[in-house]
């Protein structure tokens, strides 16, 4: 390989690395997270199913709405600590669902608190489909 083509290859590799890092850093969105759940389960998220899931107690003490209220555009309040919770709807709170790891962290915690188990990808898709369209 000539030194010129080596140099070009090196520069191309740099650009590629930069692009990969840029893709990682790019903010995620609720719609993108929803589409990942949808491709996992092979169907669309059902907003009405999601709403019903959100307001139901599932046999336990709490529903999602016990802390978040039944209105995703409203502020919530933690049922135990009284801690104020920002609205769940991205239309009111643009920071919602911009980080997939954070979404997963809170699904795991909140589903365990409400249902005593983790949520299925179907349930997450439905809830997300409802929340991001409010």
């Amino acid at each position: 390989m000539s030194s010129m083509s080596k140099r070009i290859t090196f520069h191309l590799a740099l650009v590629l690395c930069g692009a990969l890092i840029g893709m990682q850093a790019r903010a995620d969105s609720g719609a993108e997270q929803l589409s990942r759940y949808e491709s996992q389960i092979g169907r669309s998220g059902q907003p009405e199913q999601g709403r019903l899931f959100f307001i139901s107690k599932h046999g336990g003490e709490w529903s999602c709405a016990s802390c978040h209220t039944e209105n995703p555009k409203a502020e919530g309040k933690h049922a135990r600590t009284d801690h104020v919770l920002d609205p769940m709807a991205p239309s009111m709170n643009p920071k919602r669902f911009t980080n997939a790891a954070k979404t997963e962290k809170w699904f795991k915690r909140s589903c365990n608190d409400v249902l005593s188990r983790e949520c299925t990808p179907e349930e997450k898709a439905d809830v997300l489909a409802w929340l991001i369209t409010q």
Partner: peptide, 9 residues
């Protein structure tokens, strides 16, 4: 964690 799941990775 005092009645709630506060798990982290």
């Amino acid at each position: 964690h005092f009645g709630n799941d506060a798990s982290l990775d």
